[in-house]
């Protein structure tokens, strides 16, 4: 474990907590893409499937973190699609999730480190995570604005994988550990946030709201 990975996981936890707080406090999921949250839930379940296959004692933080990720993302989906369904902006959350799931699944069958069920699921989860934020970015481009709290969520969510890139550089240099699939997907994932990062740093940090040119 290195500082980059630690802060990456903390940033990820922060993103999940910020979104939950936003929805719970405002009792509304306006401006939040339900599809992105569904895709993240699928990512966690397919990536941590080993938790279900053979029960492991919760002695170490890694197992606990995985359970937190899975339960928090499922709970977020529950809030969006059930509890606060009336505030879900389905009209603007219109990116076809199938266009992300099918290519990720196909690619996972073609490019993977080992052709076995667990490995294919893990690879699918990595590829899907790289593009899972697209419906959320698409929704913001459709509505033309993002609530400040949602911008903080996106900044924490984008920073998590950016910090993981630093973690991979660190591990390559000090542990000569390389996980090519995770690295390539992580770079793609972080690149997708670039224009948002620019808007966040030039606007939100100065207290302005993100409003996209219509």
């Amino acid at each position: 474990m290195n500082i980059f990975r630690l802060f990456g996981d903390l940033s990820h936890l922060a993103a999940i907590a910020i979104l939950l707080l936003k929805i719970w406090k405002t009792r509304s999921c306006a401006g939040v893409s339900g599809k992105t949250q569904l895709l993240f839930a699928v990512c966690f379940i397919t990536r941590y499937i080993d938790l279900f296959l053979h029960f492991v004692s919760l002695y170490n933080t890694e197992k606990v973190m995985k359970l937190i990720y899975i339960s928090a993302s499922v709970f977020t989906c529950y809030l969006i699609f059930f509890k606060f369904k009336a505030t879900y902006d389905g009209n603007h959350d219109s990116m076809r999730a199938e266009f992300l799931i099918v290519p990720a699944a196909g690619l996972a069958c073609l490019i993977n480190t080992k052709f076995d069920a667990i490995e294919i699921l893990w690879t699918f989860s990595i590829y899907l995570e790289a593009v899972a934020i697209l419906p959320q970015l698409f929704l913001i481009s459709k509505t033309g604005e993002a609530e400040t709290i949602t911008s903080h969520y996106l900044f924490a969510q984008g920073s998590y994988r950016a910090l993981y890139i630093l973690n991979w550089i660190y591990r390559y240099h000090y542990e000569s550990h390389v996980d090519t699939i995770a690295i390539v997907a992580g770079v793609v994932q972080t690149i997708l946030y670039c224009d948002f990062f620019y808007l966040y740093i030039t606007k939100v940090v100065k207290g302005q709201k993100i409003v996209l040119p219509a």
């Binding site: 990975r5 996981d9 990820h12 080993d50 296959l53 053979h54 890694e62 973190m65 995985k66 990720y69 480190t113 080992k114 069920a117 667990i118 490995e119 893990w122 993981y164 973690n167 996980d179 995770a182």
Partner: peptide, 10 residues
């Protein structure tokens, strides 16, 4: 089912 030790990250 041996978990792939290669993926030791979240």
């Amino acid at each position: 089912m041996i978990r792939n030790k290669q993926h030791d990250e979240l």
